[in-house]
Design a protein around this nucleic acid. Structure first.
Lengths: 229, 229
DNA sequence: CGTGACTGTCACATAACTGTCATGCGGCAG
DNA sequence: CTGCCGCATGACAGTTATGTGACAGTCACG
């Protein structure tokens, strides 16, 4: 369900940074420290997208790229190259290496994720935009529509954003503050308890038929989209 | 329980920003406005990590760093340097100062917290990791769930914190005073015996099926998460 | 301008969790 | 052997967090 991104990067600090930020953006991340490891890990499970450093120990990024393109499973997998300033040759710019896009280090994380999304949208649009699913709940961003076990669910704008946020990381518990930030925006001042009210409204709206309440209250911590139990 | 971060930064605005953001990310933050104050405050309670500005009044960041490295309590405490562009000399880059990492101002808050987490993971993984395991008990901080041999265990907030603390150092015996500090906070005044009661509640909750009691009572000393001897 | 939809707050009801105590048990020192 | 002392435990009443219905203000749109 989450887009699966493989990060092939030998610089530990950068890899960690990427890992952390991409996870936060709702991607599932796997790391490889050099080209060899990268090629191996890609075999295990085909990623939805590969982030590839240009310079790598053992097998260079270019070579990894070439090999990936020869394998049927990864022939069409989007590859995003990371290059340092100065390595930005014509070859890179022309994407002659077989990569689909590249970014020059240092880069803003927001730029990177934007490019990742753009690539994914091209190949696997359902991963980035359109649709989030959890259990029998489907949220369609494009049409701004939510259904539960097929039946249409009407949500106000706030409840929609709330559910959207929950569905990006099901199971995770969010504090009221965090939800406030995510749904209302970082600089909004409203009563924290307002979150409760909207969670309540979301619950009521999602209660189609005799369906179970998909939102778990975690006392003194917050809420999560989750099985009860 | 929360990682304790000391911020040594003379620029008020930046210090406030750091304080605010780190608190939001789940760190406990203490501030010092110059090197001298920093060295003093670190003596009171050893932080889990120190954020240190390169340029500081009274005692420079480099000097603070050097002195911290000579003290046994802080010899291994991770230090993250904050430098302005232009101060990014080879000395900084090589981390010859004794710091463990550095970031160049201005920086994205997400980058900073990622680096902080990376450093903490190296030294005190139990502080940052999402998931703690001991025998058949699994505690997941992100989803705030505890399971024992796969079965879900419901804990109240206090029992959750208590178990979390125990699981950071399994096998170790903690006095009631220590548990009080860790779980209730350093400035709480409740009956010491209350610890017994909560340990009891934790035991009861953990007793799923016919499972063994994972908490050992050490007469006249305290408790530990441990195999029964 | 009227609607109707949507929001944010409040007050109150309810449920969950807390801290303390009294009681009883059992090991350990004397 | 026996009387403390420390610990376990069930009961309980106080506290705190959450659920919810009501309500008035806003806003978009016809």
């Amino acid at each position: 369900m989450k887009p699966y991104v493989m990060v092939v990067e030998d610089e530990e600090a950068l890899a960690t940074l990427l890992d952390y930020n991409l996870e936060k953006e709702g991607f599932r991340v796997e790391r490889a420290a050099d080209g060899e490891e990268g090629l191996l890990k890609v075999e295990e499970e085909t990623p939805d997208l590969i982030l590839l450093d240009w310079m790598l120990p053992k097998v260079s990024g270019v070579e990894v790229c070439r090999q990936l393109r020869t394998r049927p499973e990864t022939r069409r997998t989007p590859i995003l190259m990371l290059t340092a300033r100065g390595e930005e040759t014509d070859k890179v710019r022309g994407l002659d290496t077989g990569a689909d896009d590249y970014v020059v280090k240092p880069f803003a994380m927001s730029e990177l994720t934007a490019r990742i999304r753009a690539l994914l949208r091209r190949t696997r649009p359902e991963l980035v935009d359109e649709r989030l699913e959890y259990a029998d709940i489907v949220l369609d961003r494009g049409s701004r529509r939510v259904t539960r076990s097929g039946r249409n669910v009407h949500l106000g704008p706030t409840e929609f954003r709330l559910l959207d946020f929950f569905m990006q990381r099901p199971g995770r518990v969010f504090s009221r503050e965090r939800l406030m930030d995510a749904v209302w925006g970082p600089n909004t001042y409203v009563e924290l308890r307002t979150v409760d009210v909207h969670v309540g409204r979301l619950r009521k709206a999602l209660k189609v038929g005799g369906a179970e309440d998909p939102i778990r209250t975690v006392r003194s911590a917050g809420y999560s989209l989750d099985q009860q139990a």
